[in-house]
């Protein structure tokens, strides 16, 4: 199909996916992901140039409902499930730079 996935590719993908891997994990995942992608090489035998893609099994178009307020989640119940909350909002560490 394409060139085999490399250790560097896996490290890059892990970073994109917000996962941190140690050296051993990087080795193991590289070989496992390569196995799965190698299996997908059987698709290369197919002539797919004129075939449209299918993203979804149902031929649904936009699904709309009447613009009426219905039942909504309870704010206190939702916030109760969060790791950290302040003044009815989700609290997170600083997004830019280090904590003061």
């Amino acid at each position: 199909m394409t060139e085999r996935i490399t250790r560097e590719d896996v490290a890059h993908v892990a970073e994109l996916a917000r996962l941190s891997l140690d050296q051993d994990e990087l080795d193991a995942f590289t070989s496992q992901l390569a196995d799965v992608l190698d299996h997908a090489a059987d698709l290369d035998a197919l002539d797919l140039d004129e075939v449209p893609p299918t993203a979804h099994p149902l031929p649904l178009r936009n699904v709309l409902r009447p613009d009426v307020v219905g039942e909504t989640s309870d704010r206190a119940e939702v916030l109760a499930a969060a790791p950290s909350v302040e003044e009815d909002q989700f609290r997170v560490p600083p997004v830019l730079g280090e904590a003061p």
Binding site: L19, S84, P94, A99
Partner: peptide
């Protein structure tokens, strides 16, 4: 991502918190 529900592993900034939590 450790923000709205479930596990959070604390870290000095949000990006590191996301990664530590998911890892």
């Amino acid at each position: 991502d450790g923000v709205r529900f479930g596990l959070r592993i604390d870290a000095p900034n949000a990006g590191e918190m996301n990664t530590a939590t998911r890892t």
